[in-house]
């Protein structure tokens, strides 16, 4: 009996009664902008520290072949890695985002269709591509798709990076469709009812009343997905598509695969990707703040 602490007095307050906990806006809730929020929360000055840290970390590692040699080697490869490598990462991400957005918008509107069968198909497609590993989708598209197609007698080659675009646009499509569906459904249903009472057709309501309101809400999560997609493009390197990471490995091989090359070369990739995605993340958070619902 003596050991028994009194909750709230001698011990941490506990109860088995159904008590509603105070609402904590920071905890638990799903945050769809997690990646951008995290990336954008890095203060700009840290970026410069990071840039300084990179050569220092590399210097700490060197043995015989000095790190200065490794950076000289990197210097020789920078044009190739940037203009034949990273440019393709951007190209792949831009194309995949374009295709994914267009297809995702259609799929998202199918989610709010009045036909049950269309809703069900849209739900299935979305779940399928949203929950499949990106790498698996890439593998399927890269190995199952033909390398060229014949249209009206002319042969159109499909290079590896185009297949990567298709493979990456599938999960983007599914995720964008969820954004569109969520945005459309976030518009209060009174808007639909008001539109109906003013004799707007369903198409008119959607295009002239609902979507214009959704558009602003969709931009931040859309940009968030773009940043995620860009950071995912190195996945293509596992499939032999010529992009930054793949070429970085090949460049290190050509330089004799010295372990000292790892930090400078992959560090350069880090700097490139960071320099590209960081402004996007900052802009996403700025826009999100601006478009936030005023309650």
């Amino acid at each position: 009996m003596a050991n028994r602490a009194i909750p709230g007095v001698a011990a941490h307050a506990t109860t088995d009664l159904p008590v509603m906990l105070p609402f904590n806006p920071k905890a638990g809730a799903h945050d769809e902008l997690l990646v951008s929020r995290w990336l954008a929360s890095v203060p700009p000055r840290y970026v410069f520290f990071l840039l300084l840290l990179w050569p220092v970390a590399a210097f700490a590692q060197g043995v015989d072949y000095t790190t200065a040699d490794a950076f000289v080697a990197l210097w020789r490869w920078i044009p190739f890695l940037t203009f034949q490598g990273f440019v393709f990462n951007i190209l792949i991400s831009v194309c995949a985002m374009t295709i994914g957005t267009l297809a995702g918008a259609v799929l998202g509107l199918a989610h709010v269709s009045r036909l049950r069968i269309i809703r069900q198909v849209a739900w299935f497609v979305t779940q399928l591509f949203r929950n499949s590993p990106w790498l698996v989708l890439l593998f399927i598209v890269l190995l199952a798709f033909p390398f060229q197609i014949e249209v009206f007698g002319t042969t159109i080659p499909i290079p590896g990076w185009v297949k990567a675009v298709i493979g990456l646009s599938l999960p983007i499509m599914a995720n964008i469709s969820e954004i569109v569906r969520g945005a459309v459904q976030s518009v209060p249903s009174a808007q639909w009812e008001a539109a109906e009472s003013l004799a707007f057709t369903r198409t008119q309501t959607l295009w002239q009343i609902i979507l214009p309101q959704c558009f602003k809400r969709m931009i931040p999560p859309w940009m968030n997905w773009y940043a995620i997609l860009t950071m995912a493009t190195p996945l293509c390197s596992l499939l032999g598509v010529g992009e930054n990471i793949n070429f970085t490995r090949q460049a290190m091989e050509a330089e004799g695969n010295r372990p000292e090359l790892l930090v400078p070369f992959f560090g350069y990739s880090l700097v490139l990707f960071f320099a590209y995605c960081y402004p996007i993340a900052r802009a996403t958070m700025a826009l999100e703040k601006r478009f936030a619902l005023k309650l």
Binding site: P79, Q84, Q250, A251, A254
Partner: peptide, 14 residues
Amino acid sequence: KADYKPWGFRNTDG
């Protein structure tokens, strides 16, 4: 191969 020196590798021009 482009990652197997000296059997097949890249020069700095790519």
